[in-house]
Amino acid sequence: MKKDNPRFTFAQILEGLEGVAIIIACYLTFFLKPLRARWGLSKEEAKRPLPGDGIIKSPKSKFTHAININAPTEYVWPWIAQIGQGKGGFYSYEALENLIGLQIYNSDVVLPKFQNPTIDDSVAFAPGDCTPIVICEPGHAMAIENSLDMDSNQKYDPKGPAPKNYLHLTWLWFVEAIDENHSRLISRNRVDYAPNIKNKLMFGPLTEPVVFAMDRKMCFGIKKRAELLYHDSHAK
């Protein structure tokens, strides 16, 4: 939710330091990048087709992360439905996000007005930076697609010709039942870009540690909130 100033509590500062430590560790263990790209999954599980894969058929960069959650899918979906800046946040390292002015504030409660996303809606990463939702299967899957001309910093139509220096990505949040009391959250990111050296560095070794740390924390953040919501609903 929108606030006038970033809130940096002691707990958030500690979390931010944890995030920095993980990022540094990833830079030092660049050779583990293939394992990080399928965190929480076996090789075969990471290859499993998921909604939205056909949008970018041959990504130059990708990851599929997963986490098991001790709660049914209906306790996980509300956190996915409200994801985004100006909504429920991304449940990641809030202090790190706000150090660069993204104005992201993580909600610890379900926000009713954001519980019905559609493909006419969008997910924001910063004020004024909205990415359209292109897949929405309530209770199950939501995906966004971004296509950007990186020279002009303007969006382009991904169905038409790509500009010379393009970025095209999708991000999927997918929740499935394991049994009646357990579920699994999958986060899949697929990226295509103009194959110049700058882009190969930017979307490879330079940002991979940051993306991994932030996405991993998001998975844990959703897990924590879903399990608490499930516990509270059964404690009443």
Rank of each mutant, 00 (worst) to 15 (best):
W77M: 11
L50P: 03
A143K: 03
P112C: 02
A25V: 06
D157Q: 02
H182C: 04
K223Y: 12
M1H: 08
I23K: 04
E97F: 08
M202K: 10
W39C: 01
A226I: 05
S183G: 00
G204M: 01
A194T: 13
C26K: 01
A213R: 11
G101C: 11
T131N: 08
I55E: 07
T29E: 04
P6H: 11
E94N: 13
G84N: 07
S152E: 08
K198W: 04
D4Q: 15
P127V: 14
T207H: 00
K198T: 13
N68P: 04
A124V: 09
M1G: 14
A177G: 14
R184Y: 02
H65S: 03
I83D: 10
T207V: 04
P117G: 10
G204R: 01
I119T: 10
A21I: 09
S233H: 13
A141P: 01
E15K: 06
P158C: 02
D215K: 03
I69S: 05
G101Y: 13
E180M: 08
Y27T: 10
I144S: 04
R48Y: 06
V210L: 09
F90E: 12
F30G: 09
W39R: 05
G139Y: 00
R48S: 08
F125Y: 09
L111H: 05
A71T: 12
H231Q: 15
F212D: 00
H234M: 09
S58W: 00
I104P: 07
N68W: 02
L206E: 08
Q12N: 15
I178Q: 11
W173K: 11
